[in-house]
Simulated assay, not measured.
Amino acid sequence: MSLNRHQSAGYMTNWAARLFARAIDQKLKPLGFSSGYLPVFFALADGGARTQKQLARDAGIEQPTMAATLNRMERDGLITREKDSEDRRVTHIRLSPEARENAKDIQAIVDQVNEAALSGLNSLEQRVFLDALGKVTTSLAKAEDEDDPKPDDQ
């Protein structure tokens, strides 16, 4: 049996993700930010508020991981939490004013790393690559949804 990691979509995607995270983390560190915060940051960048459950769903992150991420972000002064005025069990999460002030710098860093990552591809290859990644993630998400038991199935 011959295994070639360079011919494995999963391995290469994971490797690329680790390299992206390292590059972004290195540039975000001076802002007190990390790549692990980016899914929350992008979900809240429009200035709106979301619940933890909405953030976990939108980011595709498990609830316990999202809870830990939000706790770290709150500790670092990057988010605020507000109880819902009508249902005190519901908490709305927003980016803090400090995080919003850094939004342009964070976006610029992400753009810079993405540009560097795609620099070896021409514009057509970049579009094809991003389109293909979109199809891969859609296929994997669909397969995951099909594999998850529905409440009625239990």
Rank of each mutant, 00 (worst) to 15 (best):
L140H: 07
F42T: 02
S85I: 05
D87G: 10
N122W: 02
K27P: 06
L31N: 01
A103E: 01
L78K: 04
F33C: 03
M73T: 09
S85H: 04
A116G: 12
R81M: 09
A132S: 08
G48L: 05
A43V: 11
E115Q: 13
A103Y: 01
L124K: 14
D111P: 06
N122H: 08
D58A: 11
N14D: 05
Q63F: 05
E98W: 09
A21C: 06
E82H: 02
A143C: 02
S35M: 04
E101I: 03
S119P: 00
I106S: 03
R5N: 13
E101G: 02
T51E: 07
I24Q: 08
L118M: 04
K29F: 00
S2G: 10
K83A: 05
Q154H: 03
R72P: 15
V136D: 03
D152P: 08
R18N: 04
S2M: 12
I93T: 05
T137C: 13
F129P: 01
T91F: 10
A132M: 14
V113S: 01
P149V: 00
R72V: 05
N122C: 11
A116M: 03
F42Q: 12
S119W: 02
K135E: 15
G134C: 13
L118S: 12
T51G: 04
A23D: 07
K135W: 15
K150R: 07
P64I: 15
R57N: 06
K104V: 02
K150N: 09
L70D: 00
L124Q: 06
E62A: 11
A49M: 15
H6F: 15
D46N: 12
L118F: 06
K83Y: 01
Q7T: 12
P39R: 10
Q112I: 07
Q112T: 04
I93C: 09
T137L: 15
R75T: 11
G120H: 06
D25S: 11
F129E: 13
D25R: 00
K83E: 07
A17Q: 03
Q63E: 05
D58H: 06
D87T: 00
A9Q: 13
P39T: 13
K142Y: 03
T65Q: 07
D152E: 03
I61S: 07
E125W: 06
A45I: 08
L44C: 14
V113H: 02
M73A: 15
G120Y: 09
N4V: 03
D46Y: 14
Q26F: 14
R89M: 10
V40C: 14
R88W: 00
L78A: 07
T65P: 00
N114H: 06
M66L: 04
V90S: 04
L38C: 00
D145G: 09
L78P: 10
E62R: 07
A45D: 10
T91Y: 12
R72Y: 01
A99F: 15
Q107T: 10
A99C: 07
S119C: 01
K29N: 02
T65C: 06
E125F: 15
S96H: 09
A59C: 09
Q107D: 13
P97D: 10
E98G: 14
E86N: 09
V40M: 09
A108H: 04
D46G: 07
P30H: 02
Q112M: 12
L44V: 11
D46H: 13
Q52L: 10
S34L: 13
T138V: 13
Q52C: 10
T51N: 03
F129Y: 14
G77A: 10
G10V: 11
A17M: 04
